[in-house]
Amino acid sequence: MTTSLHRTRRPVLPSMLKHGLLLLGALVMLYPLLWMLSSSFKPETIIFKDLGLIPRPFTLEHYVSGWTAIGVPFSRFYVNSFIISGLSVAGTVLSCALAAYAFARLDFRFKRLWFALMLGTIMLPYHVTLIPRYIMFFQLGWINTILPLTVPHFFAVSSFFVFLIVQFIRGLPRDLDDAAAIDGASEWQTFWRIVVPLATPALVTTAIFTFIWSWDDFFSQLLYLNRITSYTVSLGLRAFIDSQDRSSFGPLFAMSVISLIPAFVIFIVAQQQLVEGVSRTGLKG
């Protein structure tokens, strides 16, 4: 009797201690981010002197001066990034869903071979195909366009997501497919009307991670875009570092904060999807 009482009652002190430590840890983790946010509102002269998180005095000057600091307004980079990320998401979701439906629900010759190849390309480092892809895009005259960054996404090059969606579709009951087939629905109708709506969670996960990856991408953008008007947010920020003298971090911080907004919005809105995506598949974010 006493032991069971002992076991159900939560010890107050260790629990508070634990929460205290966890909160402290969370603060340490978030401190650099919060400090950057707050510094972006502080006058340049106190940024480095002030370790505090409340900007006093408060100024918006860095946002104003940062916006146009390298000649082309930051809004341009934002639009460019959105176009590239948006097209990448649309292409990846569509092409990966098509392939995944075939692998999960249809029967065809050489299915196992293709499936094995699909798995094989998941772990392939991007660098092995990098140089020939660059040469190909160079010869097509695609350098300095968004095509090298978007077109491959329409051909399901992120096989990882094909696999993710295949796994998800396999987990869906087949009853609805069968019922649709009896009603005379074609494979296309079954795919579009039944499987796609049911597979929405997997498609949303695919969309979220594709968006964040292409938004944060730096390597390929660095290779393929070298005209300042076609710069993305990543490239704009990088050019900004080079143009600044080392002592003025205010505008750089302001634009960095702006660049993080989309990922942060996704974090707030789709937290559950993110956590599930990571725990189910090991996606990094």
Binding site: M29, L33, M36, I212, W213, W215, D216, F218, V233, S234, L237, R238, S256, V257, S259, L260, A263, F264, I266, F267, L274, V278, K284, G285
Partner: peptide
């Protein structure tokens, strides 16, 4: 931090 860590910012 894992979500934002890959960015230039």
């Amino acid at each position: 931090p894992s979500l934002l860590g890959g960015s230039i910012a």
